[in-house]
Design a protein around this nucleic acid. Structure first.
Length: 283
DNA sequence: AACATTGACAACCGCGTATTA
DNA sequence: GTAATACGCGGTTGTCAATGT
């Protein structure tokens, strides 16, 4: 079964979006919301664009509440820490940084932050998942060059089988990792969840999903030998409280106001302690 | 002034997964 | 149970403005 393209490419516009297109998309979503299906949206909104392209434009550029200002040192720090823990799971990282999108962070990481860190001699180690990905890519490249096209189908079947086995191996490894570092994943839970109790679904590297609630995290942390897990959890809760506050630290227009109030002092204090604890754990 | 290089960011593409029929 | 479809993610490429030569 060949996968069809997400949409017919014929007659569809590509490249930069015009103001008129932005307006059409914004107006449509304002009226009907995001949940009406991206595929059918362009036609309904009068756009000659692929639904995928519309989604991307909305999510990364037009959506209200996006922070398009320069990255603050706090955000830099947060990104580096989360990258160390999660690798290039940009959407998860973005979920912890209000107003920033995965694309934003990914671009910033690739164009600025990584260079900055290299210059400082603080280049982060390649994350486990990244190393695995890289190896798989290299292997794939080698294998594909050797595959005899006549036997392509057979090889595909074989690879499919191998993938299943590999998937199981990854799952085993993830499970082991969680056992070894009980809360490495916990830091990936979005701060901006509306229910605000850390209940969230989390996409794993292999694409599987898991969900954890704060109570589960808390109770499991009590069973761990890591003495500071509870403390980290508490700090995270405080940070979340502060981030969900109207005077969110990462909204630049509110920064001045924020800098002057007590919450900011508290945030800095808790933030400092939080990263100390995370550092101890992630090293 | 003209061209080359670099940096930042927007957008595209392909893949994996979830959902639907 | 399976194929078709839709969505979301991460890697990569394209574009354009700023800067250097």
């Amino acid at each position: 079964m060949g996968r069809k393209p997400c949409c017919s490419k014929e007659g569809l516009k590509k490249g930069s979006w015009t103001k008129k297109e932005d307006l059409l998309l914004t107006e449509y979503i304002k009226e009907y919301g995001e949940g009406t299906g991206w595929r059918s949206l362009p036609k309904k909104a009068g756009l000659l664009r692929c639904g995928k392209s519309c989604r991307l434009r909305w999510v990364n550029y037009l959506k209200p509440g996006l922070n398009r200002g320069t990255f603050t040192p706090e955000e830099d720090d947060l990104i580096v820490r989360l990258y160390t823990l999660l690798g290039s799971r940009w959407s998860l990282i973005a979920g912890r940084i209000p107003g920033r999108t995965d694309n934003d962070i990914k671009n910033y990481w690739n164009t600025s932050l990584l260079k900055k860190l290299k210059a400082q001699g603080n280049e982060p180690r390649e994350h486990k998942s990244q190393a695995k990905k890289r190896r798989r890519k290299e292997e794939k490249a080698n294998v594909s060059s050797q595959i005899n096209r006549k036997n392509n189908n057979e090889n595909k079947k074989k690879m499919k089988k191998e993938k299943i086995v590999e998937k199981h191996n990854i799952e085993d490894e993830e499970a082991t990792k969680i056992e070894e570092q009980p809360h490495a994943q916990d830091f990936a839970q979005p701060v901006s969840d509306s229910n605000h109790n850390f209940t969230s679904s989390c996409s794993n590297q292999d694409g599987t999903s898991s969900s954890t609630s704060s109570s589960e995290i808390h109770s499991s942390s009590q069973n761990t030998e890591y003495h500071n897990q509870d403390e980290i959890f508490e700090k995270l809760q405080v940070i979340d409280e502060l981030l969900l506050n109207d005077n969110c630290l990462f909204q630049p227009e509110k920064c001045i106001e924020f800098n002057n109030n007590e919450n900011h002092m508290l945030f800095e204090e808790v933030y400092e302690e939080y990263f100390q604890l995370v550092s101890e754990n992630s090293c």
